Simulated assay, not measured.
Amino acid sequence: MTDVKAEPTASGRGAQLAHTGLRHGWTTGACATAATTAAYTALLTGDFPDPVTITLPKGQTPAFALAAEELRDEGRTAMAAIVKDAGDDPDVTHGALIRVTVRVLPPGSGVVFRAGPGVGTVTRPGLPLAVGEPAVNPVPRQMMRDHVAEVAARHGGAGDVEIEVSVDHGEEIARSTWNPRLGILGGISILGTTGIVVPYSCSAWIDSIRRGVDVARAAGRTHVAGCTGSTSEKVAVAVHGLPEDALLDMGDFAGAVLKYVRRHPVDRLTVAGGFAKLSKLAAGHLDLHSARSQVDKGFLAELARRGGADAELAAAVAAANTGLEALTLCAARGVPLGDLVAATARDEALAVLRGAPVAVDVICIDRAGTIVGRAESRGPAGR
């Protein structure tokens, strides 16, 4: 029978990161590893360890309380479940119930992974998993294999098991992730390289950007677009006719896109976004979040001067309340501030690309989605 328990947690819940005061959390991969360890232990001993302790890749040893457990099929199948605690990170999988069902396989079968309900299946090339494989990433797979081997050695098992990972409501959660665009269908991915979620590190978003580039390249796309939001994405599609798998949800992480494309080039990159955000890129900022970079009106005033603004207009731009106000002031006087920001942002992007064989164009929009600045495609050394 199933034993559903109250208040599932991991030991250390509420622990704070010294430099931020924020609680860290645990990845889906760490939760799945803990559930695997508990379920396989129960298969070999008849008892579920609760809490169950695992060893993370960097040596930490958190303990996780079980939310549910079940032995069935005359002791040949066990299920254990853990609620993911993402700490203080705004993670869409926070609170998700990660279930792992472990089944005994014939000798010599090794460890086989299956996608249960709520875990996606890979349908496109370019990811670190083959098409048709469950979306359980390589590091979590290795963590689970290692813990199966440890449990087998401790309790006299053979280590030949099927591990089925499922996530309650995972298909619904996945709609808030990149998975559908990456061709991972049916649910979320089981992720994590360290096992620990660092609040506001945005590592999952940056990893999704990288996987987006990989999928686009594997599909033969030679032109991709990094967009700051859904409105700029629609504009990039309208202008260039790009398919969905060529679109990168860049958000505020311009640097993540540029640095990964530098190492994994495509022929052409379009950067599309709001005027204010792209003015930050033009000023040399690679993180466009308002908490980490600000619109520099003095910089905009200098650009306006280069575009023909007189001293009075330049002073008005420098004193503007917002980037949009600066843009409006310049438009009224015939100074193409939007185009100047786009061109400067393009040149900054090319500088980050460091001569990689990638041509860059930039599209700046206002909040309504109207194009207010463009810089045509230019590659290394002005090509």
Rank of each mutant, 00 (worst) to 15 (best):
T55D: 05
Q60W: 11
L313D: 03
T228M: 14
A318M: 09
F48Y: 09
G25K: 02
D287G: 12
V122K: 02
H94W: 01
L324N: 06
R13Y: 06
V148T: 11
A351G: 10
A319K: 01
M143E: 11
V148F: 13
A10R: 02
T41C: 15
L17R: 00
V167L: 00
A63V: 04
L327T: 02
R124W: 11
R72E: 12
A149W: 11
G25E: 03
G369Y: 00
D214Y: 14
E162Q: 12
L313E: 05
R217C: 12
G355M: 04
D249Y: 12
P243E: 04
V317A: 04
R175C: 08
P265F: 11
G159I: 11
V198T: 14
I206K: 15
A204G: 15
L247W: 03
G192R: 02
E376Y: 04
D252Q: 13
V131G: 08
L22P: 01
M250K: 07
D160E: 11
R72M: 10
K5V: 05
A68C: 06
V111S: 02
G273A: 11
P380Y: 11
I363T: 00
T9H: 12
V317R: 04
G21F: 08
R221F: 12
R367Y: 08
G95P: 09
G226S: 10
G14Y: 02
V4I: 13
V295E: 07
G110Y: 05
A158Q: 10
G382H: 09
G132L: 07
G379V: 06
V139I: 14
N137F: 15
A42V: 14
P138D: 12
D3L: 13
T37W: 09
A38S: 13
S290R: 10
G46Q: 08
V362L: 03
A225P: 01
T177S: 04
V151N: 05
A152C: 11
T55S: 09
A291G: 14
R23A: 15
R354F: 09
V148R: 06
K259N: 13
A96V: 06
L327Y: 03
A246H: 03
G14E: 00
T228A: 07
A326Q: 01
R333A: 15
T45A: 15
T270C: 06
A238K: 15
E164D: 06
N321Q: 08
V111I: 08
E74L: 07
T123C: 10
A238V: 05
P125E: 03
V4P: 01
A254F: 14
F253G: 01
A65V: 02
G59R: 05
R210C: 14
D73M: 05
L105G: 07
P117F: 07
A359K: 00
G87C: 09
P243L: 11
F113E: 00
A254P: 15
L288W: 05
F299M: 00
P106D: 15
V131K: 08
H94L: 10
